[in-house]
Design a binder for these strands. Structure first.
Lengths: 341, 341
DNA sequence: GTGAAAGCGCTAACAC
DNA sequence: GTGTTAGCGCTTTCAC
């Protein structure tokens, strides 16, 4: 156990140890050309010997830019966000950024203070993994200061990278209609009605109308804090009494929730009820879940989002917000089948 | 769309706007007593009007300490870590820290460069959510510089906050033995043999020996990059041929994997095989998974870990590494039953 | 109650 | 090739 308070060595310590000036040390650190290989090694030795590690704070203060990426995520407990967070972090690290996460848990205050904090840290940019709870205030905090990119969600004051929610919803709904379902309901996201949800709802409605069917949209009833199991069961029970034979859920999380309710209520999936999700989280692919769903290209979404934010930060990309949409793919598993009878 | 490059207002801008010196502005920001309420409001107005936001980098540079917490996590795609990450982030934010995540994906290089980066950012402390891939080098990077806390894993050069892995494993194994199982195998963590795994294995072995049974430990065979499905099935098939009737998996992730293999191989759970996990991730509680498992008190683990790290950072806690162990609880679900016959 | 001044550790001209 | 110097935006004595 080494003693803790050992002060960090500074560039001056290194300079003294190597018998050069601090700018020479700086030059070595930054790898600028024009340092004799002799001094270079001497400096390097001093660095190694002192365990010197440049102070990023000082560097960033003078350079007037950081390599910190702010990431705002609603709920890391939701596998889709967790998986996206992982990809985002990897992509950021690959480009020399460090990710600072704010898990807002859907709480407005947490979101706002998190964003303000990110601005105080002078984050180079912020990446929204889920729709801000308070879009207007979020906008007032970050817009105009640093670039923002919305992944899997949207706003008009930043770049948007998302799956083709509308087309995906069409595919999903069409799959259900093609199987012969007539009473197909849409189940909206339990957390918040976001842009993606909206687009998915649109795609759903279009297919329904085209097929001469009546669109029916349900929202999970939200309890203070969390959804109550009994409440959910009641809701789902009611829907099934409405003779709905298929449901398209705006995301896998909700779809799996639905599967749970169905199990508890003794409703068989897919015999009595077909369910389609959206996202294709790892869990959806488990044999026991076997959820038919729309696959979002997670690594690509993350990679493009980070690349875009990077380009904005570097000044390589300028002008009005860009919009990048990636294709989704229907993954058919065990939760969908033709209706009975 | 406001123009981006609007330079951040500084404390000097505020001072000029308010007609005071920058130290007065600083005093207002930091809320020190001894500023006339008149100047205070004048300064506050200037702050609001300019949209001034203190530069944390500059502050931390002069204060010689940051409020950045480094969090090293193996795989955010693993629900247990994602859930823990969420709690850690919340706990950190609650104490005024910002969490900087490094998702190492078990990669040594990623871990090392992540840690070095954290040191360069002068993170106030680092929190390991999973065993470092290269413990020795990790140690040489952080030990002696900033305090480290290991949550759900362990090392002798930092505080450790973990569940009672040994006792938990005992409970789990005993549950199986009490059900009448004689051939009970232990399945080690697929990622890396860490300290928690080791303790769990110990608890398992103790119960087996006490019951006069032969302990059998299996390791998932690791493929370069990831586990191959076929390989896994072969392995599990072989184990079952060995007439094992129950398995205790070192974590839920592995247990669910096992469930998957069993499903594919036509092995019924719990009729042909009982499975107990460890962690109690949300997924384990799904009706369709119904995994009997040991519940780790995630929020408490996270809260205590962050509190401990905070205490170290503040200098309230000093001396040799502390060790905090929390109790775990057996949650019986549908994956365990007496053996047939 | 308020201001002047000295840094924190670094980069980036600009001399030599 | 290497050193000198002026900041980056802030905190924090210490005078007034």
């Amino acid at each position: 156990m080494t003693a803790l308070p050992a002060r960090h060595a500074t560039i001056l310590d290194v300079a003294a140890a190597a018998g050069v000036s601090k700018s020479t040390v700086s030059n070595v650190i930054r790898g600028v050309a024009g340092v004799s290989s002799e001094t270079r090694t001497r400096v390097q030795e001093a660095i190694d010997q002192l365990g010197y590690r440049p102070n990023v704070l000082a560097r960033q203060l003078v350079q007037q830019r950081t390599t910190t990426l702010g990431v705002v995520v609603g709920d890391l407990g939701n596998p889709f966000y967790a998986e996206m967070a992982k990809h985002i972090e990897r992509a950021a690290a690959g480009r020399g950024y460090r990710a600072m996460f704010c898990n807002t848990q859907g709480d407005e205050e947490a979101e706002l203070s998190g964003l303000e904090s990110l601005m105080e840290y002078r984050a180079a940019g912020v990446l929204f993994l889920s729709q801000p709870a308070d879009p207007e205030r979020a906008r007032s905090i970050v817009s105009g200061r640093v670039p923002a990119v919305f992944v899997t969600c949207a706003a008009d004051w930043g770049d948007v990278v998302s799956a083709d929610d509308d087309a995906g919803a069409e595919l999903a709904t069409q799959h259900l209609v093609d199987l012969g379902h007539r009473r197909v309901a849409y189940f909206a996201d339990p957390i918040v009605e976001d842009a993606a949800d909206h687009d998915r709802q649109k795609g759903y409605s279009r297919v329904m109308e085209r097929a001469g069917l009546k669109p029916t949209v349900f929202h999970w009833q939200r309890q203070p804090g969390e959804l109550l199991r009994q409440k959910r069961d009641e809701q789902v029970g009611e829907i099934l009494r409405g003779r709905v034979t298929a449901v398209f859920s705006s995301n896998d999380y909700g779809a799996i929730e639905l599967l749970e309710c169905a199990d508890r209520l003794g409703v068989r999936v897919p015999e009595d009820l077909s369910v389609v999700g959206f996202d294709d989280v790892v869990m959806a692919g488990l044999a026991r879940i076997g959820l038919t769903t729309m696959r979002q290209p997670q690594p690509e979404l993350a990679g493009i989002a980070v690349a875009m934010l990077d380009a904005r930060v570097q000044g390589e990309l300028e002008g009005p917000p860009r919009r990048k949409t990636l294709d989704v793919e229907l993954v058919i598993r065990a939760s969908t089948a033709p209706p009975r009878g």
